[in-house]
């Protein structure tokens, strides 16, 4: 697989959220606004890139039997870095994301990439893989956040965009809206795939 392919596969072909259904908890929980979604996406991307690079660096020294605990400790350390920096520099965002910042530790995308990719590939490729998957995750959060904020609050990134004639649907920024939105978006991607398959 070429380096470019390693990077781009996370964006669409193997998008962690829409195609692999991984990392669902933060995806649904923080997308009630675009801003929260992007904050969460970038935080997870940082942890993903950092842990992928480190796991790849030490992959020859790690005994296979205890690799999972080692990966978890590496991931947890990066999450602590993100948690404390975010609390220091972006206290408002940190408060809005709440316990979902420390919960990046158990985001299955990160452990999944460490296990499936970084533990077997070179540092450079692992970096690209982490970056691609992280941006794919951020993109998914951006899509869901945009739909929910637009329909539920009539705004984008906190700026009102719909006119006064539009009555915001509160349900979209409440928990049920998250389930409904991701259900329909996933169905849309599946529909695209089915259509492509039937054309070939």
């Amino acid at each position: 697989m070429s380096a470019i392919k390693v990077f781009t596969k996370g964006l669409y072909a193997q998008n962690p959220v829409f195609k692999q259904a991984l990392g669902l908890c933060p995806t649904l929980a923080v997308t009630n606004s675009v801003q929260n979604g992007i904050g969460m996406g970038l935080a997870a991307t940082f942890v993903l890139v950092g842990s992928n690079v480190l796991v790849s660096l030490i992959r020859k020294a790690v005994p296979a039997k205890i690799r999972i605990p080692i990966y978890i400790v590496i991931i947890a350390s990066f999450v602590t870095v993100v948690d404390l920096s975010m609390a220091g520099y972006f206290p408002v965002l940190h408060k809005a994301l709440g316990i979902f910042v420390p919960l990046i530790v158990v985001n299955c995308i990160i452990l999944g990439r460490a296990e499936a990719f970084a533990g077997k590939n070179s540092v450079g490729l692992s970096f690209l893989d982490g970056l691609g998957m992280g941006l794919g995750f951020t993109m998914a959060l951006l899509i869901l956040g945009t739909i929910r904020e637009l329909l539920g609050n009539g705004s984008f990134f906190g700026v009102p965009v719909t006119g006064a004639s539009f009555e915001p649907m509160l349900i979209m920024i409440l928990p049920p809206g998250a389930f409904l939105t991701i259900g329909f978006v996933m169905a849309f991607f599946k529909w695209l795939e089915n259509r492509k398959a039937s054309h070939v």
């Binding site: 409904l180 991701i182 169905a187 529909w191």
Partner: peptide, 11 residues
């Protein structure tokens, strides 16, 4: 067809 599996579970 497009809704089968995970999408319908979410809805």
């Amino acid at each position: 067809k497009a809704m089968q599996g995970i999408p319908i579970a979410f809805i």
